[in-house]
Design a binder for these strands. Structure first.
Lengths: 346, 346
DNA sequence: GGGTGGAACGTAAACGTTTTCATCGAAGCT
DNA sequence: AGCTTCGATGAAAACGTTTACGTTCCACCC
């Protein structure tokens, strides 16, 4: 009696449960008169349908699951935001699970999704082919984010890490005219980091073929960026430009240089990757590669929704990549440090 | 055949579904031998229990729902992060719904939670008493965040807006010695904004009783902070210190002053509220009121979990408030602009 | 006026689990 | 040997819905 079910409504309204279901769902088959009566009773009793029961028979949950490695930082909040935005536009709900304590954890999280979601969006370094095979219910529509996996099994959406890094190096080399461009790379085992590094190499080979490339490794943290900056200064020979594989490292590097009295961008240019919100507020404002993470989330969900609507549509086997472009601010020296334009806060 | 159910496992293993359930759940009542056989079959068939079906009978979903007004900005991502952190520590999952397109929307979101969650965390300006009464299943454990609501019905967790604002003004008045302190307030209909404003007034009355208080209204956006800065300069008489009711407005104000060539903090001190990540990276680094949003989310979930474990425990009728404290950086002029300490990126 | 058709409504099966209860057999005891 | 006890197992109910299928009833048509 504590919670009111469809039976209570039926009894109170003097009809069968079937009629209540029909009336409340707007399926035909009930007089306008009885429908009204049922509706009245339902609101009076404050009846709320039981989601689990409904989706058990309907085989629809109107919920999509998101498996993410971690909730941290701008990236993931932006991503979730994008997914959620698109989801609610479609009347879908979001079951998030940030499982990052290893494969066990991720597997468990994935399994509990069974029967609670209509589809999955997965962004996880651990999600290799065999992992997915054993833990993902055979027929659950899924789209992968930022995954090295290819193939017709699941659609994949990637950030154009390679292209973004390439474009940034081109900017530094061609438009700014620098030759001695160093990379503060990300961790070796990180897929994004690998691709960005490759983009750097390719662009260096293309635009300043006779200049040596110079790479110091970081870990995508501000601290590691700071250390990288110190390291380069200690080496006695500063590069003319530093391209950090993400913004946090760029900022760390910026701080290290500032502390040492090195002027940015006059002596050394510094650029990053990601365009996190902080980027435009540091001084000098950071030139970086903008990747519209919100859009990544959004298109992931759109793609998934398409899969849900047309289950056996042949999915384009090619992986989609989300373009990104460099946004020029002050830290690269390509423009005179102008006034920071005031933008409407988002 | 497309999805494998418990029946398939039972048939394949030559036992009843009951035994499969017992074996897989580790309830007693099966020989070690048959348990192993069942387990083997289950993994071979890649059986994954159906969540909805299970929770239909168990009346447990191991999921908690979060109703938030919007996913935007640092605040909400931090909040979710806090909730999620505590949730996964308890083996709970998270069903988020950011419903901000009005009451209709929020109501719909809340109703679809029925049967999918064991409890709710609600942070919504729209969630007044009657709204909750009509849309919240009678017996669903719920904790409210940052709500003006009081009473024994639901536990409430609040940020100590009043105390934080009070402390900041005290800092400006007592420790920095300023008397002419202006407030850039938040929107009138915002609960946080109201409390912060009240804290400002109270502190002004307490510490600089003979100084006039000065309030210009903003909307919690960077742009409105920028405008507030311009407005104050246009008035011809700049205050000695500006306390903005949130960081984004403080930053906007900072920019306006900087553009006009006003030196911060030498001529005008500027402080904010929230301690968003950006705050420590602007120059001068922003003195602000730190509120541990992650902790807010965490304790909300802890509280909810306690409710779940002991449903009829008398909930402390007093609303809990989460303390906050001022963190002194450069923008208030209380200390000599030091080196920005490099922190480990979170 | 006796069919015919269709709309309104009820009955019951189904969804995939867990759990109570009954059954069965073996082991232990006198 | 006859009884009890207990552990392993299966049968079936239950959870709260939706929906296929009947049934009833009324209007309509010849």
């Amino acid at each position: 009696m504590t919670t009111v079910t469809i039976k209570d409504v039926a009894r109170e309204a003097g009809v069968s449960v079937a009629s209540v279901s029909r009336a409340l769902n707007g399926t035909g088959g009930v007089t306008a008169e009885t429908e009204k009566r049922i509706r009245d009773v339902a609101t009076r009793l404050r009846y709320i349908p039981h989601g689990a029961a409904r989706s058990l028979i309907t085989r629809r949950t109107h919920t999509i699951g998101a498996l993410l490695p971690d909730m941290y930082g701008e990236f993931f909040s932006e991503l979730i935001r994008g997914i959620d935005l698109a989801a609610r536009a479609r009347g879908l709900h979001l079951l998030v699970s940030s499982a990052h304590d290893g494969v066990e954890d991720a597997a468990a999280a994935l399994r509990t999704m069974r029967g609670r979601v209509d589809g999955m969006i997965i962004l996880s370094p651990r999600a290799d082919a065999s992992f997915l095979h054993t833990n993902l219910p055979e027929s659950l529509p899924t789209v992968l984010l930022n995954s090295p996996l290819r193939g017709p099994r699941y659609p994949v959406l990637n950030i154009d890490n390679h292209g973004g890094a390439y474009a940034m190096v081109r900017h530094l080399a061609v438009e700014c005219g620098y030759r001695d461009i160093a990379l503060v790379a990300g961790p070796h085992d990180n897929y994004d980091a690998q691709q960005r590094e490759e983009g750097y190499r390719a662009a260096m080979a293309a635009f300043v073929p006779d200049a040596a490339s110079r790479i110091v490794r970081g870990e995508f943290t501000e601290e590691s960026g700071y250390r990288a900056g110190c390291e380069m200064m200690a080496s006695g020979k500063l590069p003319r430009a530093v391209f950090a594989a993400n913004d946090m490292m760029a900022i760390g590097c910026l701080l290290a240089l500032r502390e040492a009295g090195v002027r940015v961008p006059e002596e050394v240019a510094v650029t990053g990757f990601d365009d996190i919100p902080i980027a435009r507020y540091v001084t000098p404002a950071l030139t970086t590669v903008q990747v519209r993470i919100v859009d990544l989330g959004r298109s992931a969900l759109e793609r998934l929704a398409a899969l849900l609507d047309a289950p056996d549509q042949a999915t384009p086997p090619e992986a989609d990549t989300l373009g990104c472009h460099v946004v020029v601010r002050d830290s690269c020296g390509a423009r005179s440090p102008g006034k920071t334009s005031t933008k409407k806060a988002r």
